[in-house]
Amino acid sequence: MVEAWDVAETVGTVASAAAAAVATGLVAWQARLARRANASAHAVVIDSAKARLDAEAPDLDVRVLAPAWPPLRDANDSTSHLTGDTVWSLPRDERQTLVCTLPVDLTNRGTRDAEVTISGDVRPVSELADHAWNPGQPIEDFLMPGREPYRFHLQGTLTLRQCADNRAARERGRPLPHRIAGVVSATDRRDEGITDRWELVMTGCPIEPVPGTEDQWRLTVDSVVPQWKILTVEQVARERTYWISRRRGVTYPSVEDLLG
């Protein structure tokens, strides 16, 4: 038979344990509130710092134009356009290349200078105007004064095999595996400042099988869209990095990271 004092002791133990759990939970909850409040205060400071850096940053506009059509045979000959009556045989000609070109305009819309680097599959419009550039190298660290325009080409080669692979991927509803890509980055050259980055991507299916043949290919003919849209360009979006100290490699955290 359970004694009354045993029941009282058990009840007291359970009550004490429950009170301790409540107290522990209350302390943890208060700690979470304190951390949340502290994070919110830091977020306000970070938002204010980023807004100041935004106001002081260069205002670079990156705009892509229509891809050139038709492609070139030779990157060093701007008149070597392929024609619609050119026919290739695959796999015999699969290593032959098409040179695809996308004009890109940069404009510094603000009054502050921007230091710009362009890398990847890129080429100056005129190498004579860019003496430091060599084929295959980035267009490095040139200064864009305010209100100053600059044009370059996103330009690269796709082999006929890569073009055929792209077409096969599109017909299966998959992302096209082969593309031509470059990156524009701009900085304000300050230790506490910004770096802006734009990724440029051009891809497409510029060749198609010749109807009624098994291995013959030609430039794509599309009666639905303009020919220059056969090469497509992915949407260009700016990615901005905010530096506490560029020299030390320290960036401002995102507000989402603080509050998450």
Score class of each variant (00 low, 15 high):
Ala39His: 08
Glu239Asn: 12
Leu258Thr: 08
Arg36Gln: 14
Gly249Tyr: 01
Gly146Phe: 05
Ala37Asn: 08
Leu219Pro: 01
Gly136Met: 07
Glu239Asp: 14
Thr220His: 08
Gln155Ile: 04
Ala169Ser: 15
Ala181Gln: 12
Ala20Met: 04
Trp217Lys: 02
Pro124Thr: 01
Gln227Asp: 12
Ala237Pro: 02
Ser119Pro: 06
Arg240Ala: 14
Pro149Tyr: 11
Ile118Asp: 05
Ala57Leu: 03
Arg73Glu: 12
Arg112Met: 08
Asp77Gly: 11
Pro226Gly: 09
Asn108Gln: 15
Thr13Arg: 07
Gly182Ile: 00
Pro67Ile: 00
Glu192Asn: 08
Gly84Asp: 10
Asp222Leu: 08
Asp74Glu: 11
Leu231Gln: 09
Val233Tyr: 06
Gly204Val: 02
Thr187Phe: 05
Pro70Val: 05
Thr111Ala: 13
Cys163Glu: 00
Glu127Trp: 08
Thr251Trp: 00
Ile207Met: 10
Glu214Gly: 14
Ala15Arg: 08
Ala181Pro: 06
Arg240Lys: 13
Ser16Thr: 11
Ser89Val: 12
Leu176Gly: 03
Arg73Gln: 13
Leu102Thr: 01
Ser245Lys: 08
Asn76Pro: 04
Glu9Pro: 00
Val225Asn: 06
Arg190Ile: 00
Thr10Ser: 12
Ser223Arg: 13
Phe152Cys: 10
Thr213Ser: 15
Ala132Phe: 10
Leu53Gln: 13
Trp228Gln: 13
Leu82Asn: 05
Val255Phe: 06
Arg95Ala: 15
Thr213Asp: 15
Gln137Ile: 01
Cys100His: 04
Asp188Phe: 01
Phe142Gly: 10
Pro124Met: 03
Arg170Leu: 14
Gln137Lys: 09
Ala55Pro: 02
Val44Pro: 00
Cys100Asp: 06
Leu60Lys: 05
Glu148Ser: 12
Asp61Asn: 12
Ala15Leu: 07
Arg32Leu: 14
Arg218Pro: 02
Leu98Trp: 00
Gln155Gly: 04
Gly260Thr: 03
Arg246Lys: 13
Ala168Cys: 07
Ser89Leu: 08
Val250His: 09
Gly193Trp: 03
Thr83Phe: 02
Arg218Cys: 09
Gln30Ala: 14
Ser48Pro: 01
Glu234Gln: 12
Asp77Ala: 09
Thr83Lys: 06
Gln96Asn: 12
Trp29Tyr: 14
Ile46Trp: 06
Thr117Met: 11
Pro145Arg: 08
Glu3Pro: 06
Asp105Glu: 14
Leu26Asn: 07
Gln216Tyr: 04
His153Met: 11
Thr107Ser: 14
Ala31Asn: 14
Gln216Cys: 07
Glu94Pro: 07
Pro253Gln: 06
Val27Phe: 01
Arg35Val: 05
Val64Asp: 04
